[in-house]
């Protein structure tokens, strides 16, 4: 369980998040929706610990950062590093043994090739594989379905459901509302820097109504 309270973040004079409160229970898939620039990615970076903020983020883990795996919208790949080396680096960073990479390569990526030459979707799949083999407790996934082919999208959905069954916390942002309603236990709408509406499977349509009425 992660508790976020009074989280505020500003860039210069523009306030992106303002006194945001949110609970992220274990064993749940939580969706985050909101307009472009609403603060979804900023919220994710704050939880991941790569962005400074005011307020507090507490959890049951002694060092939350070492339990979180974050998939960015456009994962950065350094040049001249192969997919295989990228995965080993992630294991090494957490002092974990390197698993059999043929087994964990769920998307059949060409691991011997340079990761920077991968397509957008392939980079995303590689970054996801990396955080999966780290055996994290919390997964923060920023637009995981974008730029990924249909077959992999189905694989992603089943992977996230499997993670929920294992008791992990999965936080997803996406603009594909139908995909979120299929797999999420709860969805939160971010607007004006805070959570404006929270819905569970019984009232997901309320969020859709708000989003439609806005347009």
């Amino acid at each position: 369980m992660i508790e976020i309270s009074n989280l505020s973040k500003s860039y210069g004079k523009s306030k992106v998040l303002e006194n945001l409160d949110l609970s992220l229970p274990s064993g749940k898939i939580i969706g985050i929706v909101g307009a472009n620039g609403a603060g979804k990615s900023t919220l994710f970076k704050c939880i991941h610990g790569t962005e400074t903020f005011d307020g507090s983020i507490t959890s049951e883990f002694e060092n939350l950062r070492t339990k979180i795996g974050m998939l960015e919208t456009n994962p950065i790949m350094l040049s001249l590093i192969t997919g295989e080396e990228y995965l080993i680096l992630h294991c090494n960073a957490r002092k974990l043994p390197v698993p059999d990479l043929k087994v964990v390569n769920m998307f059949d990526l060409p691991l011997k090739k340079f990761a920077s030459n991968y397509s957008t979707g392939m980079k995303k799949k590689l970054a996801l594989t990396a955080i999966l083999i780290q055996n994290n407790e919390v997964f923060i996934l920023d637009e995981p379905f974008n730029g990924v082919d249909l077959q992999s999208n189905l694989k992603l959905k089943s992977t996230f459901i499997k993670l929920r069954e294992e008791g992990k916390t999965v936080l997803i942002s996406s603009h594909i509302f139908s995909t979120l309603t299929e797999i999420c236990d709860e969805i939160h709408l971010i607007k004006d820097g805070c959570i404006k509406l929270t819905a569970t499977q019984t009232n997901f349509h309320e969020i859709e109504d708000v989003l439609i009425s806005k347009n």
């Binding site: 790569t50 950062r65 974050m70 960015e72 994962p75 950065i76 350094l78 960073a93």
Partner: peptide, 13 residues
């Protein structure tokens, strides 16, 4: 910059 951003996603501060 790019290299640091890459490692920020992997390592702690």
């Amino acid at each position: 910059k790019k290299r640091t951003s890459f490692y920020r996603g992997i390592y702690s501060r």
